[in-house]
Write a protein that binds this DNA or RNA. Structure first.
Lengths: 157, 157
DNA sequence: GTATCTGCAAATTTTTTGCCAGTAG
DNA sequence: CTACTGGCAAAAAATTTGCAGATAC
């Protein structure tokens, strides 16, 4: 089901680090493992607390440094949610993010915008040279869904 | 062309504040004016520096408080870009945001996702009750567009 | 008149940095 | 070996808070 397992991830990390002129260390491996396999979009501090159980001596500064390096190498992405928190995401498949307005939970929504939609955006963007996008959905998760029964218009901005 | 002018904005602000049980003050008016008419998506500090020329005594804390209030009243939106900066946006028409990967400039792209696309998202999101979305486009602005000639695939996440 | 504001400064929170010993390659 | 790293503690940046005097209504 999963196209990646711990060993494969480790190889990818090792190689990517090397390609970018960085060294493979236990700390980086642990940070990467947690980010890549987490589906909760942890904050830097979350990662720190998690990873600390595995690499007891690791410092928060190291976690920050490792995360930044992973982002620079393209192995992770930094998400700045509209609620203001910075989260990290190690997923590589295209997907969107759905944030619950009530409980703040962030979940992945697989899929990507249709080609025609992207083409339309490219037109709308005029001279802007479109390379990628990040779509944050807002609404209510199944746990928080308020007692309203309709699904009327989602709106941009 | 513009549906709003300073006086109209001021009325809107006055009324909206009142509806929400807040008072109209010069500081809030100045903050609102700058955010509503700015097309540069300023940070809180940007707003502070701008507004200070008009309301010399205003403090940064007041700007933060005013901005938060405007956001709560729906008169402005807080954008947390994936480059990490928090910006404020006073536009009300639906639009997306395009961020240049080279110079960091943020520009508006008018338009919204098509109904069919939103319907598709709603399906993909399954039990998530979709209410709205925020789309951040990334790429290169006309000033920075690199010497690459193609427009190959924009990708999610 | 009075509850709501503002400005100030201090407190938080989040993230970054400098430095020296430690370690990967 | 030697340059890149990690940990630590301090610094910096970003945002929030408490409070006393000022002000909208």
């Amino acid at each position: 089901m999963k196209s990646s397992n711990a060993k494969f991830d480790d190889l990818v990390l090792r190689q990517t680090l090397q390609e970018n002129g960085h060294r493979y260390t236990d700390q980086r491996a642990a940070v990467f493992k947690h980010v890549a396999r987490s589906r909760v979009h942890p904050t830097a501090e979350d990662v720190f607390l998690d990873v600390r159980t595995e690499v007891p001596g690791i410092s928060l500064a190291t976690v920050y440094k490792s995360l930044e390096m992973l982002v620079n190498c393209g192995l992770a992405k930094k998400l700045n949610l509209d609620d203001g928190s910075a989260r990290f995401c190690g997923r590589t498949e295209p997907h969107h993010h759905a944030r619950c307005l009530a409980c703040g939970a962030l979940s992945d929504v697989p899929g990507e915008l249709g080609d025609s939609e992207v083409a339309a955006l490219r037109l709308q963007a005029k001279t802007f040279h479109l390379v990628g996008y990040e779509l944050e959905l807002t609404g209510y998760c199944s746990d928080c869904a308020p007692s309203m029964g309709n699904g009327a218009g989602a709106s941009a901005n």
